[in-house]
Nucleic acid binder design. Structure first.
Length: 122
DNA sequence: CATTTGACTGCGT
DNA sequence: AACGCAGCCAAAT
């Protein structure tokens, strides 16, 4: 379903902001990702951290691994779980060979290839 | 009410 | 590419 709106207007009540964030995340197609800042901007905010805070508290029911940092790194503290999802969805990664993916020490060193996995939401 | 705390960013070193 | 740092703003202490 489409994003409930909020185009251009300031965030307002936290409840609505949370709904909007989760709605956008739910729309990111498998194999693709959006950055925290990108989502914040789509809601008229400039603070990516607030989006991170929303994900930390309410993101467990949506594909949270499809929201990444601007650097291409997965959400802090969730590198391992996120990697499993990326491999399963075929998300474009870098710094990681299919062989190294099974190595314990490779977890946390990879990055998502934003140029290829980036999503526009429009 | 003041401070600290983040699933963050961009820029300078 | 890694590291530090200021800016960011809602929530929790």
């Amino acid at each position: 379903m489409p994003v409930p709106a909020f185009r251009g207007r300031p965030p307002g009540p936290s409840e609505a902001f949370v709904e909007a964030v989760l709605s956008i995340v739910a729309d990111i197609p498998p194999g693709h990702v959006a950055t925290y800042g990108q989502i914040a901007a789509a809601l008229g905010s400039r603070d990516a951290r607030v989006v991170g805070g929303v994900m930390a508290r309410y993101g467990s029911d949506v594909p949270w691994w499809r929201v990444v940092r601007a650097s291409g790194r997965p959400p802090a503290g969730h590198e391992r779980a996120a990697l499993a999802h990326y491999l399963r969805e075929g998300t474009p990664l870098s710094g990681l060979t299919s062989e190294a993916a099974s190595r314990e020490d490779a977890v946390g060193r990879y990055r998502i290839d934003l140029a290829r996995a980036g999503w526009s939401m429009r």
